[in-house]
Write a protein that binds this DNA or RNA. Structure first.
Lengths: 155, 155
DNA sequence: CAAAAGACCAACTAAAATACTCGGAATTAA
DNA sequence: TTAATTCCGAGTATTTTAGTTGGTCTTTTG
C-alpha cells in the first residue's frame, strides 16, 4: 500500500516545474539535479506526465518543460494517476461497477471495503490542486528558507 | 498503491472466521479451501492476525481459529494494518509528526499530500467495523445465494 | 553551418518485494 | 497412540521497481 518513487519523484518534479518555469522552460537536467533524481529515470516519469497533458515540452537547445495548464487546473490526483496508474487499492473491475473480471461480483462483500478506500483516496487527491502546493512552497520560501534546503527534503 | 494479497486474502479469512466460528473453531485447512487460498501461505497471514490479537487459536485435533473479540470491536483498519503494516502511502516519519528521518521536514511540501492521503485512508478503514461486513454477508446469504458462490468472489 | 544543448525512445539489468512452498516439531482430542 | 491440527523457520520462483545504457531527432547560438 505504498506509493512508488514514480509518484513521489514525479510530484516533486511537477512542483519544481510549477515553481521555476514562469520565465523559461526548465531542462530535465536542471530538475533532476535540483531534486536529486537520476536524470534518465526522471525522463520516464516526465514522459508519462507529458502524455497525460500535465506538462508540455519544447525540444532543442533552450528547450525544456513547462506546465501544460494553470496549476489551479491540475489536481494532485491527476498527477499521481498519470504516474502510478489508478489509485485503487485493488484491481477489481467491480470497484467501478464493471461486470467483467470478478463475476461473483454482487455477492462480494470485501469489494465494499475496497470501494470505500478507493473513494476516500480519490476524493482526497482530486480536491487538492497543484496551485495549493505552489502557494505553500512560495510562502515557505519567503520565510527565509532558501531554495536549496527545500530540495533536500525527501518526502 | 495496491494492497497486496496479504491484505486481500487476510480480510477474507477474518470474515470467513467471523461467519463460521460461532459453533466451533474453524481449521486453517477449511478456510483455505473455502477461500481458495494456499493453506501454507494463509498460515503466515493468520499468524499476523493472531499476533495482533484479532483471532485466537486452539491447537491439536478439533482445534482452529475464532475471533479474539466481538466483530463490532474489530475495525477493518486494524485487520489491514496487522496484515500490511501501516497504510501510509509513503514511509516518511513526518507524516506522523516525528522529526527523525526526513530532516528538512518543515520545508517539505509534498508531505502534506501524503498526510492528506494517509488520513483519508485511515479514517475510511477505521470507521468500518468487521460486524458491518458480517451483517452484509448474512443479508446476502439470506437472499438465497449459497455459501459456495460467495467464496468464489475474488475481490 | 557546425556543434552544443536538449528532448525523445527502446531496450536492458540489478535489486527488492511478493507470493508462495517445504519440512518438520509441538499439541490435543478421540 | 494416532490422526488432526497449530506453529515455526527457512527456502525459492516470479514479478515489480528502480533504475541504466546507448542512441536518435530537434533547435538555438557562435
Amino acid at each position: 500500500m505504498k506509493l512508488s518513487t514514480k509518484g513521489r519523484y514525479g510530484l516533486r518534479a511537477v512542483l519544481d516545474i510549477a515553481l521555476h518555469s514562469e520565465e523559461e522552460a526548465v531542462a530535465l537536467s536542471t530538475i533532476a539535479e535540483r531534486q536529486s533524481i537520476s536524470i534518465s529515470y526522471l525522463e520516464q516519469l516526465i514522459a508519462k506526465l507529458k502524455k497525460a497533458g500535465i506538462v508540455s515540452s519544447t525540444r532543442g537547445a533552450k528547450g525544456g518543460y513547462i506546465l501544460a495548464k494553470a496549476p489551479s487546473m491540475i489536481s494532485v490526483g491527476e498527477i499521481l494517476r498519470a504516474l502510478e496508474g489508478n489509485l485503487d487499492p485493488v484491481d477489481c473491475a467491480e470497484i467501478v461497477g464493471g461486470e467483467t473480471t470478478c463475476n461473483a461480483s454482487d455477492i462480494c462483500v470485501t469489494k465494499y471495503v475496497w470501494k470505500r478506500i478507493s473513494d476516500s483516496i480519490n476524493s482526497a487527491v482530486d480536491n487538492l490542486m497543484l496551485s495549493e502546493l505552489v502557494e505553500e512552497s512560495k510562502a515557505r520560501l519567503k520565510e527565509g528558507l532558501d531554495d536549496k534546503s527545500m530540495n533536500d527534503s525527501m518526502c
